[in-house]
């Protein structure tokens, strides 16, 4: 998902509880979590719980910020004024999600600047999906339908995650994401009922975005390193594979309604199990993209870095002006003389 790299790296950080942590405090914490109490910023929490949350929330925030780029790529070329306004508002929502997720992470004792520096340096991860290019207008539909659809699958359970500020941020995020998902599907519907060229555009977008969307849920459960701990702490509510299956089950009929074909010859309905069974995911591609070798990894980070660097003088000027104002306010008497 937007935090899929959690499963991939940093083996040590979230594992053991340090010996220094009071066993009684840990037990009380775990009892609260088990009782579905929300953990709040000033409550005691194990250091590993805090670190896992900081990584998860910041990866999610970074994904929102980087995710502005592939869709932002089509704002100036949106084919109608209604689409233009909707897409711009959507990308703005993503910036807003990034902002309140950074704020949620800050309640855990890290600064936005620190987290942002980790993103720009390439140290922090963001969702692999945003390293794919948006080549046609249909990609805007496909992202809304598939990528936001996959995000919602993961984020609805996060509205009940054990950390209060994260859970509350997710409630608003989910409302907006589900609106985006409907918007994306509506673009796909319009294209698939349009001219032959538009339908081909929609099919091509599905062909390119389907498998990367399935990869958004992260590696299969057997390879997911932190699932157990995160499930016990109720940071995570369902496993990667469970969520992926839910997504496929919900999405395949939607694609058929559009009259489109999924790029998976093994896709079939298992009437007995009640699920859509899908073919093998190319995990080598997933790992390559996470490792920085996707089609747009370098471009996405470079764009963000350029924006940050070329805005440095603006931030410095704002601080300098604020300092001058403070200095002037501190000397009103002298100024009046």
């Amino acid at each position: 998902m937007y935090t899929q790299a959690l499963n991939q790296q940093d083996g040590v950080a979230t594992q053991a509880t340090p010996a220094s942590e009071d066993a009684g405090a840990v037990a009380r914490f775990e009892a609260r979590v088990a009782a579905e109490d929300k953990i709040e910023p000033n409550d005691w929490m194990p250091a590993a719980y805090r670190r896992t949350l900081v990584r998860q929330i910041s990866q999610h925030a970074h994904s929102e910020i980087i995710g502005m780029q592939p869709e932002g790529n089509w704002i100036t070329r949106a084919p109608s004024l209604r689409r233009k306004a909707a897409l711009l508002a959507k990308v703005q929502d993503e910036g807003g999600h990034g902002l309140y997720l950074y704020a949620a992470a800050e309640t855990l004792g890290v600064s936005r600047e620190e987290l942002y520096a980790q993103l720009l340096s390439g140290k922090a991860k963001y969702s692999s999906i945003f390293n794919y290019p948006t080549l046609t207008w249909a990609d805007i539909g496909a992202i809304g339908w598939l990528v936001d659809g996959a995000a919602i699958m993961n984020q609805i359970p996060l509205c009940r995650t054990s950390y209060g500020p994260y859970a509350r941020a997710m409630i608003r995020v989910c409302k907006e994401e589900s609106f985006h998902q409907r918007q994306g599907y509506e673009i796909m519907l319009t294209l698939s009922r349009g001219t032959a060229e538009q339908k081909a555009m929609a099919q091509d977008a599905l062909d390119r975005w389907w498998w990367p969307s399935l990869m958004m849920f992260g590696p299969p459960d057997g390879e997911s390193q932190h699932s157990d701990q995160s499930m016990r702490w109720k940071i995570k509510r369902f496993t990667n594979d469970d969520l992926r299956q839910q997504f496929v089950d919900a999405t395949v009929p939607q694609g058929h309604h559009l009259g489109l074909t999924f790029p998976d010859p093994e896709l079939r309905f298992d009437a007995e199990g009640g699920h859509w069974r899908f073919g093998a995911i190319d995990w080598a591609e997933f790992k390559a993209v996470l490792a920085g070798n996707g089609p747009c990894n370098r471009q996405r980070l470079k764009t963000r870095r350029n924006a940050h660097e070329s805005g440095a003088w603006v931030r410095e000027a704002a601080l300098a002006h604020a300092a001058k104002r403070r200095a002037r306010a501190a000397q009103p008497a002298r100024a009046a003389e």
Partner: peptide, 25 residues
Amino acid sequence: SEWTGRAPMLEEELALANAALDYIG
């Protein structure tokens, strides 16, 4: 709207997009 993703800070991303949406509206 061409500023999207290029603003000097996140708050300005949102503010510039707001103004752009007002004008388009």
